[in-house]
Design a protein around this nucleic acid. Structure first.
Length: 764
RNA sequence: GCCCGGGUGGCGGAACUGGCAGACGCGGAGGACUCAAAAUCCUCUGCCCUUCGGGGCGUGUGGGUUCAAGUCCCACCCCGGGCACCA
């Protein structure tokens, strides 16, 4: 809000919109607990929040307000889904999904924490197979990665996105299945593997498949059937945490299939294993194992008594196990002697030449699973016909809105599943009987395009007009918490790119948010304060007792905005006290406004200069988002004015008027109510219509400064000297100091460092 | 394990490019006003020593560079965050 007001005073046209991301699990759970419909509590909460935001003096454009549960908003969220569907960016697939038993719904990969728990409920996420809807975000993996370079975002956030996208370069190729005599079979397809180190292939002494690999059944030998079945049963019983854990014996983490594949580089038959650490979701779900250059393969090889061959020469002083560093290739026939990069290129060339493989880029990023088995979300506009299968709802039938006559029960099952009126419909294709999709969309879908709608919130023909978006987007300054670094910011970037490519948004709008500022979180007693935890400190009580401006000032003063802050550290009283001082100083009938007549004196010039210095400091601090120091500058300046007024000579009227007006102008964006009132009483006008003051450079020039005199780097004296003093004059002044002379005791300094006008260091 | 941040008084924090450490606020002490209290106003407030002139120590720890280090370099400790079997 400060930024909006400051930019406005600078003459910018500012669009500062507000909306409510109103769908979601907390609202649904609260409704279940209260036995009401989530719309009632949601609408009431929006009303309450809007009132609160207005009370604190936020200058949002309320004409543009949005709510994601508004049927008009739902219409366009669904319209975009269908547009994506038409263009192959939406698909339905049976997939192993993350099921949260607490939320009773599936989660996107991004919503599962590293320890395998749900980001929202903290429950242990389970693996399940289900038919689900996906957004094909992986289609944009490369562009999402590349375009990060040009964004004015915190490096930390960009790094997190890069890691999440997880690009890796390597090669994919086939390992022929081995016949009983160890030769390569030509009658069946080989096993595809992905590696980033094709240069180490001569050291491949075994291969490993994921236990969920589709070819497991086919490739397990008769004798190994029982052992493998037992292994798979153990693995699937394991929780995500156990499975990701590197603790425990490696022997228990893999099993021999009884089959062999052929290393195409050496033509040797090598054993094929299953291991739980190989993931179906990455690469091809099968790997070549090179224990000499991969520690995990090394450990596995040792546990199962498999051969280890080094193919990169480690340095002489290397005493580790697997060696992953740089070095010449060894034991690798035609690769011997090549460095890693050259050997990779040569191995890739050979794979292509043999027709068994090719270079391949892989991403860690998975497609975005958007289905949620919940009620309070945007319905997915699809119907299922027995004859025609899944069919999109025609655009002119949008929005598909959930019915009101539902009863939410604590079972966690969406009431849509059993609501006959909602469920039964006709097929848009054949007109026959059909059932509606009962899943709703992840709420991150709603927040992936709202910034575009803000440009054109009342459009009834389209989600937004291109021209309106062209006028306002990309967002010049986006502000949010780091908790959105991956989820929201990645999804919103994907939507923007896809909408631009589909001709919905301007084609050149490749990114939604040009600059990003990640503000800190407000904590409470060390814990997290958030709407989902229900421990919000309501601003209304503070506003009632101290006023909105005291609260605003306290928020700005407590810490730099990028850092987390504990509510207990807020200094409301001190800020309130400052506003009292401001009031008494600036009020036309105030007690602090006694002035003297007569000529200007040097003290008046000083105060005048202080006013210009204040403008300079506060402007600088606003520009660099250093609001706590801006507040400090204003307090310091106010203290100076108090001294000025209380001085024996008193304050000179015109000087004081300018000094106080300047203060009111620069603090206006921070404390809009008090300043508006004071300005009106002083001038009968509106302070918020003032132009931002500009400091007079001539008034910023100082005549005298404090010269610090050090002896051997320790401060021994301070002298007031002319600001334009030269090096030798500064040295002379320092040597003339009686304190310094006493300390030197007649000795001559061996070296003098003179940095006029601030410092002279005498080295003895 | 890897990658980012960060460690400064009793507390929140200041210190732009190496150049006065601790701005500003909170808290604390003293004083003025008042019959008294609140509010307000003023002064002091890093730690230790002091003959009250001043002196010593001090930015997580240990070393280094420099006339000079909170700031730069090396090693380590602690806290917060992200990623984590990704082949």
């Amino acid at each position: 809000d400060l930024l909006v007001r400051y930019r406005t005073m600078n003459g910018d046209g500012v669009l500062s919109p507000i909306g409510f991301d109103s769908f979601g699990l907390p609202a649904e759970n609260a409704a279940i607990a209260a036995g009401t419909h989530p719309r009632e509590s949601t609408d009431a909460n929006i009303e309450r929040l809007a009132t609160s935001l207005k009370r604190i003096g936020a200058v949002y454009d309320w004409r543009r307000v949005l709510s994601s549960h508004d049927p008009e908003y739902i219409r366009w969220t669904q319209w975009i889904f269908l547009k994506f569907y038409e263009n192959g960016l939406v698909y339905r697939d049976e997939a192993p999904v993350n099921w949260c038993p607490g939320c009773k719904t599936v989660l996107a990969n991004e919503q599962v924490l590293a320890d395998g728990t749900c980001e929202r409920s903290g429950d242990l996420v389970e693996r399940m197979h289900m038919e689900q809807w996906f957004y094909r975000i992986t289609e944009y993996a490369q562009e999402l990665l590349d375009d990060l370079d040009d964004l004015d975002w915190p490096e930390r956030v960009k790094l997190m996105q890069r890691n999440w996208i997880g690009r890796s370069e390597g090669a994919e190729f086939s390992l022929p299945i081995a016949a009983a005599d160890g030769s390569a079979r030509t009658d069946v397809e080989g096993l595809r593997v992905y590696t980033t180190r094709p240069d180490t292939s001569f050291g491949m002494t075994f291969a490993v498949m994921s236990p969920e690999h589709p070819r497991v059944e086919e490739l397990v030998s008769a004798e190994q059937q029982d052992e493998v079945r037992e292994f798979i049963a153990t693995v699937s019983a394991k929780s995500e945490i156990d499975r990701l854990s590197t603790e425990g014996p490696i022997e228990a983490r893999g099993v021999f299939t009884g089959s062999h594949v052929v290393n195409p580089f050496t033509d040797a038959a090598i054993p094929l294993y299953l291991a739980d650490y190989v993931l179906t979701t990455y690469g091809t779900g099968a790997i070549m194992a090179v224990p000499g250059q991969d520690q995990r393969d090394w450990d596995f090889a040792e546990a199962f008594g498999l051969e280890i061959i080094r193919t990169v020469q480690p340095p002489e002083d290397f005493d580790g196990e697997a060696y992953t560093g740089e070095g010449p290739a060894i034991n690798s026939e035609w690769l011997d002697g090549l460095g890693v990069a050259d050997a990779i290129a040569e191995a890739n060339r050979w794979l292509v030449e043999q027709g068994i493989g090719e270079p391949k880029v892989n991403y860690r990023l998975r497609d975005w699973l958007l289905s949620r088995q919940r009620f309070w979300g945007c319905p997915i506009p699809i119907v299922y016909c027995d004859r025609c299968g899944a069919q999109p709802v025609p655009v002119d039938e949008l929005p598909v809105v959930a019915p009101d006559d539902v009863e939410l029960t604590p079972t966690g099952q969406s009431p849509l599943v059993s609501h006959e009126g909602f469920l039964n419909t006709t097929c848009p294709n054949c007109g026959g009987r059909a059932r509606r999709e009962t899943d709703t969309m992840d709420t991150f879908v709603d927040s992936s395009w709202y910034f575009l709608r803000f440009a054109d919130p009342d459009n009834t023909e389209a989600p937004f007009a291109k021209e309106a978006v062209e006028r306002w987007l990309p967002v010049d300054q986006y502000i949010g918490g780091v908790e959105h670094a991956i989820l929201h910011l990645m999804y919103a970037r994907f939507f923007t790119k896809a909408l631009a490519d589909l001709g919905v948004a301007p084609a050149d709008l490749r990114e939604p948010f040009a600059r990003l500022f990640t503000q800190g979180m407000v904590r409470f007693g060390g814990g997290k304060m958030s709407k989902s935890r229900g421990n919000l400190v309501e601003p209304d009580a503070i506003i009632d007792s101290f006023g909105a401006d005291s609260l605003r000032l306290a928020i700005l003063q407590v810490k730099p905005p990028a850092e987390d802050v504990d509510w207990e550290d807020f200094g409301i009283e001190g800020c309130s006290r400052f506003l009292g001082r401001l009031w008494r100083l600036a009020h036309p009938d105030g007690v602090m406004t006694a002035t003297r007549d007569g000529e200007r004196a040097s003290v008046d010039d000083e105060v005048d200069k202080a006013a210009h210095r204040l403008i300079d400091r506060v402007t600088f601090d606003y520009e660099r988002w250093s609001y706590n120091t801006a507040v400090a500058a204003c307090m310091e300046y106010t203290n100076r004015l108090y001294k000025y007024v209380q001085d024996d000579d008193g304050a000179h009227g015109p000087t004081l008027d300018f000094a106080v007006d300047t203060l009111l102008e620069v603090v206006a964006p921070m404390v809009p109510h008090v300043t508006a009132e004071l300005w009106e009483r002083r001038h009968g006008e509106h302070v918020h219509e003032r132009r931002w003051p500009v400091a007079d450079p001539a008034k910023l020039v100082v005549e005298t400064v404090t010269l610090v005199v050090q002896v051997n780097g320790k401060v021994r004296d301070r002298l007031e000297v002319a600001a334009d003093i030269d090096a030798s004059a500064a040295e002379d002044a320092a040597l003339a100091s009686s304190k310094v002379r006493a300390l030197l005791d007649g000795a001559e300094p061996s070296k003098v460092i003179s940095r006029p006008p601030t410092l002279v260091n005498l080295v003895v």
